[in-house]
Design a protein around this nucleic acid. Structure first.
Lengths: 154, 154
DNA sequence: GAGGTTCTACTCGGATAGTTAGTGTCCGAGTCGCCATGG
DNA sequence: CCATGGCGACTCGGACACTAACTATCCGAGTAGAACCTC
């Protein structure tokens, strides 16, 4: 799993701590976490494309959440940058080589692939059950004010 | 996730269909699924190191299950080749940059990392609940005999 | 024909190149805010 | 003092190099079995 996943999770959490109308730019977020500016922008763009963030251009512009924190799950964020595809890709090797099965025998999906898909679904379900609002509930009370102060203040 | 994960899952399933004392070599398995021989051997070696398979050398040698199929879960196989580490690695970016938190504030683990770890644990739990014996129950009745025939017969 | 020995062929194991995805970087197009200017 | 036009700086967005992991491959050490020779 890419390291950028952690970046966007923290960035989204930080954006969730801002005021309703406020936004943070790539530069602000990159300096806040000491991350490569341009590459971070690439990831944030993916979040915009996925509908998790909205981007405003020009001075005082930047990114903000597209929906209330209660309506954004960790799964939305992770899959926005990771693609949302099951990491286990069934390449149907059961149809290759000396032991190749007939097309008839492969009408139902591979049992192993099904079990792997179930596990992936369990993972997705776990992340889908956690929203940014719940994350905000679990951070210290003084954190939001501090985040706003440091992100906003040059 | 590496493509070799699918290889070892299918190989382990095939080995589970053999007789108690029988074994299959890298060559046999590679030809059975039309896979690169040497690279497959690398993965099988990892399974041996993890204690899932046992290897016997010399003619008529090869690999066999180290335990009964009922005692080998898909998780055992996957983690043997994948390393078993959580794909999400918390690099503690909250302690970097302008917004770096004090060491005091980071005494408890990052909430985001905890949630990601929970999801990973859900994934592991799902795979740990599926054994090779259950997989064998779900494949057609004629499959084991066919596998033995093709794997054994040159 | 039986036993011992040699020999071969087959097995796994570690060290070595090639390829793709992830990582990092740069520059360009567009837009909002600020400042100077004129009324 | 207020409205307006221009300017500048900051923003996001896409196109171009670099690194690490996965993929693929080769060759060597060791061993079980078979064949052969001897008795």
């Amino acid at each position: 799993m890419p390291a950028s996943t952690e970046w966007v999770l923290h960035c989204a959490t930080s954006l969730a701590q801002l005021d309703e109308r406020a936004s943070a730019s790539t530069n602000q977020l990159a300096e806040y976490f000491d991350l490569p500016r341009a590459y971070l922008a690439k990831q944030l763009k993916a979040l915009v494309k996925a509908g998790v963030l909205t981007a405003t251009t020009g001075p005082r512009g930047g990114f903000r959440l597209a929906r209330p924190p209660a309506e954004i799950s960790l799964l939305d964020i992770v899959e926005a940058v990771d693609g949302g595809a099951d990491p286990y890709e069934c390449r149907e090797i059961r149809q290759q080589g000396r032991g190749a099965l007939s097309a008839e025998a492969c009408r139902h999906t591979c049992v192993l692939a099904a079990k792997m898909a179930e596990a992936h679904e369990a993972w997705r379900s776990s992340l889908a059950g956690v929203t940014l609002a719940e994350i905000l509930d679990q951070i210290p009370d003084w954190a939001p004010a501090r985040t706003r102060s440091i992100l906003g203040g040059g």
